[in-house]
Nucleic acid binder design. Sequence first.
DNA 1: TTTAGTAGTCATAAAAAAGTGACTTATTGG
DNA 2: CCAATAAGTCACTTTTTTATGACTACTAAA
Lengths: 103, 103
Amino acid sequence: MTTKRAMGKNETCPAQAILKQLSGKWKPEIFRLAVDGSLRFNSLLRQIEGANRQTLSVALRELEEVGLLQKVVIKEKPLHIEYYLTENGKTLIPFFKQLENLK
Amino acid sequence: MTTKRAMGKNETCPAQAILKQLSGKWKPEIFRLAVDGSLRFNSLLRQIEGANRQTLSVALRELEEVGLLQKVVIKEKPLHIEYYLTENGKTLIPFFKQLENLK
DNA sequence: TTTAGTAGTCATAAAAAAGTGACTTATTGG
DNA sequence: CCAATAAGTCACTTTTTTATGACTACTAAA
């Protein structure tokens, strides 16, 4: 039997952790765009108006670090990079989609 | 027929909005505690170690402003105040609970 | 009316996050 | 080798969030 005990003082709960990982000025928007498909750096820069290279760069790196996004280098005409949701990140899609339909 | 169109450039999507509302150093934790029941100010101050009055005060006010928490003054022995999830806030509980069981 | 307990605010300081503009790296195609 | 394009980094500034410590407001009970 799996005992379901309350979360202790400082054991971070997974839901709380995910909220923190998506915390920030641009991460929610980046995540929304990621749910819609792959992301290129410059494409994001254009889509997310108000954001800038540095900020975006940092946000993407952090989302990568916590394992929500993965970076793929595409060696084509003009080489570019795409960011995708990881398998882990994809598990959040249904929640995100359902949140859409709340209010 | 309800046409389901893609989210335009700057129409904020609800899920994105909710993530932003819960963004910050302490809001995810406050929200987690709120899911578990009511919250008193000093009780929070004790539970959330690292946080302080001012910061907590601001976070609670903001959560109140976006309509996730509501404040109730209890005129008893030592008067105190409780914060509860609003009806609106409660609609998020199932999502939060499910997130728990992900990873 | 004084005191104790709770829940704050205020002015200010420190720390963290975001923004700027110039510069760098990597790759492909000519 | 050279130019063009994409994706950054770097040093630094500005803005936003958090933190500190002292102080205030409200209520109930003594």
